[in-house]
Design a protein around this nucleic acid. Structure first.
Lengths: 344, 344
DNA sequence: CCCACTTGCTAATCCGATTTAACAAGCTGG
DNA sequence: CCAGCTTGTTAAATCGGATTAGCAAGTGGG
């Protein structure tokens, strides 16, 4: 691209030294003796010429490209993706690394081909990322490489995983409800997804419910019912409408994600019930919409930025990677949808 | 990263030829004579050894890294970003290119530093992208390089731009309203942003309004009023509530983006008005929320995927880049929020 | 005065490809 | 029978750095 770049040879020539000296001076290495004068001349020449090292050439020798490859299923198409990528990018940038972002769309051939493309470019490490937390089987090209699993788990695959701490998130939701005084009329919408309806729910649903039930029980409260359904906005609308139509009068709704909450809001609104006056709503994810609903939604946030950041930080640590599961805390976003239970 | 890779020298040795022959055979080049037998042996050896070329080494010689760098302001944090990136990635992938994604967060020092990092890695081209359509002044490091401007314009900077065709989008919105029979009681919410309230609106607002007014006029209709305001959900809610409170009874609302529409829905709902029975709503962007509102929102879609794709395709075309503005069509998403005007 | 040891620097090699220049062997036509 | 062409192949240079091995000049001790 465009005119010839200044090379180290140019710098060496201008400073009147060999390229060896220039290389050591520029790298700031002290394991070879260079006079202060020579060092200064090299640095000055580099400065004047606007010298920038050619990372491509360097990595041919050093085997390090300061580059990390990220392979995802369809991470760019989810509303969260941006934060994951941003977290990863910023962590990479702090250590002078750059990120190749790729997406395989769930196609395992595409996945292999992308991993190859990344490997051909000599990336220092690979991050294998999933749109939602789930179990995966990474492509065989990844075996034996420096890999971090982002938002997914692969038992038997020797690599660290970075996932949200869903169980604790469930506990936090329960604590928030208890703190507001709720002990009765609590319904969970979305359920465990034990018989997975929405793949997204397999891990999230189970773990959130586990933490929720655990703390509710300890707090002397309990779930009046659990509605098992898919996790879309229309599902929330339909199921909550049905619940009300059956004569139930919930005091608090734990929606397993924000889209369900939005559907629940629609159903409650149509039934003339107010949030949180008549019914409190708490949920998980903290999508954009959560803060814009009326009333703003109290929800336990998926820590996407932190997830991306930690995944990159792990790859950048020196030494081999340990196959440990890192659980990232999910902070509770307290807004306006949880209130004291309606009396009577 | 991990064990030694197979090099071309290995392949040549196994095939019993020189690395020159191996190189030409693998590249499929015919400008040097190679016997069919030798060619076959090389290919077979490569296959058996699982040889993959080292792109880093190759590009040192060829000056082409098959890599494109994308620098954005804060593209990852917007709900649209995913599609832009996906379009860019897929276009790159089709031509065996990979994408470095970076984000400067609007900081021009960070921008320069990122461009350098990209240039140091010898990217073949750069894409300078903005979150929303606006005028930009690219960092000086970009001058003289192979650059495409994505979702932004920089008069005086010799590079092609790829932007949405906002004027035509405004025309389409007007046509949709006319087709449904609307000629009176049409209000625009969000306005021209001529005195920019929301930076996002500077170009989008002006051009959408221009197209809208043009076609409305030609169709014998006109705007009853234009509300100038910011472009967030609360603004839509507030302004439409105010409009109704003042006694106005709009038949159709043209909201300048989907967030405004969502706010308008909230206000209309609170006033007991139905969409589209009492009031039709049409808007721009087609964010995720548009299809999930009740009723689903008719909106003119921002072609993010196409934008990303075209930007990459331009960089991949051979020859110098022409400083042309490419306007990408914005398709109308007809859903359920536009109906015949209320009678009486 | 000579040997050993610093000090300061450079020549040469390597990394893994691509590409240029050249060369050996076989064939053909005069 | 030999010059000249074709055919098939390879040695060597190159890209831009990092690294290893080694060398010349100066210093100090005996």
């Amino acid at each position: 691209m465009s005119e010839r770049r200044i090379t180290m040879a140019d710098v060496a020539r201008k400073a009147g030294v060999s390229s060896t000296t220039a290389s050591f001076a520029l790298a700031g290495r002290t394991d070879m003796r260079i006079s202060d004068a020579a060092r200064a001349r090299v640095l000055e020449a580099a400065e004047e010429l606007g010298y920038r090292p050619n990372v491509t050439a360097r990595s041919l020798r050093t085997k390090s490209t300061q580059t990390i490859g990220l392979v995802s299923d369809r991470i760019t198409t989810t509303p969260f993706a941006g934060d994951v990528i941003r977290g990863a990018m910023e962590a990479a940038r702090e250590r002078d690394n750059l990120l190749f972002i790729t997406e395989a769309g769930g196609d395992s051939d595409a996945e292999s081909s992308l991993v190859h493309a990344l490997l051909d470019r000599q990336v220092d490490a690979l991050i294998y990322a999933s749109m939602f937390t789930r179990y995966v089987t990474p492509p065989k090209e990844l075996f034996g490489r420096r890999v971090v699993l982002l938002n997914c788990l692969a038992p038997g695959f020797a690599a660290p995983s970075v996932v949200p701490d869903e169980v604790e998130a469930g506990r936090d939701a329960a604590r928030a409800l208890l703190a507001a005084g709720h002990t009765e009329g609590i319904w969970a919408i979305g359920g465990h997804q034990a018989l997975p309806a929405t793949p997204e729910g397999i891990i999230a649903g189970n773990e959130r419910m586990r933490g929720l039930e655990e703390v509710l029980r300890e707090g002397g409260a309990r779930l009046e019912g659990v509605v098992e359904c898919d996790w879309g906005t229309p599902d929330g609308h339909r199921e909550v409408s049905a619940l009300l139509a059956q004569g139930h009068r919930p005091r608090a709704l734990v929606c397993l994600n924000d889209r369900l909450s939005f559907g629940a809001y629609q159903a409650l609104g149509e039934a003339g019930l107010s949030v949180p006056g008549d019914v409190s709503v708490i949920s998980f994810d903290d999508q954009d919409i959560a803060s814009v609903l009326r009333p703003a939604l109290t929800t336990v946030r998926l820590p996407h930025y932190q997830l991306g950041r930690l995944a990159v930080e792990l790859t950048l640590r020196s030494g081999p990677l340990e196959a440990v599961v890192h659980r990232v805390p999910m902070p509770l976003q307290e807004r306006a949808s949880v209130g004291a239970p309606a009396t009577g």
